[in-house]
């Protein structure tokens, strides 16, 4: 569905030191600098896949999405989405994709969302029957009924995002580019959006490429993740494998029937947290079995669970490794 080969997107930006003198000088002489927003990345995504796109701010995630959706022309490389070259902006291509941006909105601000829906119906030339069916489906899935008639500016951020999703999906696109769709939303609204994206993907077999700052989004939605840093693709594979590779250690969470000394825990591994009758111990994968056995035999255990390290930490370590390299 999506093929990207050696994609590069470089910007020429004008740089100047701060200060009025520098500003005046820059009127006559402008030093330019090339920023490599995306620097030689290749990947391919099959139809129906849900892929998470991770990376720190300015890593090139949004730029890549914009190239894939045809908004930006690549500096170099070949991009094919749904059989078309995005930057040609062919009607048949645009009809099959959608881009949702958590920080920008297409709903008409002063009018109720239903007006934007009608406008998009005309723009995408959706037959009446199909439009009504899709709208009914989206309304049910996202619980939009009470929102459709209120002016957009009176909706809360979460309500607006639900309407944004609906308006972006009215034409039943085959490829969804979601750029931070849950930004600023509260936890339950994030969960609603996630659930909806998964549902849409399964029901219509749509391909989803999602960027997010919230690891929860990615963990809940995307079996496959791609990590981009400073314009380069540094990882492409399953989320599970990524965690295993970056942080091969596990976390043993023990709840005890009575408090124990810290040194009793230290024999298991590195103690991350220790409060009276509860502790988190970091153990390497190889030592895990032995540590669990030891805990069972030496500690007054109430409960024991083994978890992967939190995703936020995995990411922090991953990008730190990237910087050090």
């Amino acid at each position: 569905m999506i093929e990207v080969e050696h994609l590069r997107k470089w910007y020429r930006v004008h740089r100047r030191p701060p200060g009025l003198a520098a500003a005046l000088r820059s009127l006559f002489h402008r030093p330019y600098e090339t920023v490599k927003a995306v620097d030689d990345i290749s990947f391919s995504i099959a139809a129906g896949e849900r892929v998470g796109f991770l990376g720190p701010n300015g890593a090139g995630k949004t730029t890549t999405l914009k190239v894939l959706s045809g908004l930006l022309h690549p500096t170099e490389g070949r991009v094919l989405v749904a059989g078309s070259t995005p930057q040609d902006r062919a009607r048949s291509f645009l009809q099959q994709i959608t881009l949702v941006m958590g920080q920008k909105q297409q709903l008409l601000w002063d009018l109720p969302p239903s007006e934007t829906f009608l406008l998009n119906r005309a723009i995408y030339d959706i037959p009446k029957k199909e439009y009504e069916a899709t709208l009914a489906e989206l309304t049910a899935l996202l619980e939009l009924a009470p929102l459709l008639g209120k002016p957009t500016r009176q909706l809360s951020l979460g309500e607006r995002m639900k309407c944004e999703l609906a308006v972006a999906l009215l034409h039943r696109p085959k490829v969804l580019f979601l750029d931070e769709p849950t930004i600023g939303l509260d936890v339950s609204m994030q969960a609603t959006v996630r659930g909806f994206v998964r549902e849409y993907n399964q029901r219509f077999g749509a391909t989803v490429l999602l960027t997010s700052h919230y690891m929860e989004d990615v963990a809940a939605l995307c079996p496959r993740v791609m990590v981009i840093d400073k314009g380069k693709l540094i990882y492409d594979g399953s989320l599970h494998e990524l965690v295993r590779r970056v942080r091969p250690d596990k976390r043993m969470i023990v709840r005890l029937t009575r408090p124990v000394e810290r040194r009793d825990l230290e024999s298991l591994g590195a103690v991350v947290e220790h409060r009276d009758a509860e502790a988190v111990v970091q153990v390497t994968q190889d030592a895990l079995q032995g540590a669990v056995a030891r805990a069972l035999s030496t500690l007054p255990l109430h409960d024991l669970t083994v978890e992967d390290p939190p995703l936020e930490e995995v990411m922090r370590d991953l990008f730190a490794q990237g910087r050090a390299a």
Binding site: L108, D110, L111, E115, L118, L119, R121, A122, I123, D125
Partner: peptide
């Protein structure tokens, strides 16, 4: 046909916008 529909839908939206206040 799509063009005509789009023009009509846009006029509709901008008219509703105008009479909103």
């Amino acid at each position: 046909m799509r063009t005509v529909n789009v023009i009509r839908a846009q006029l509709r939206a901008s008219l509703s916008l105008a009479v909103q206040y």
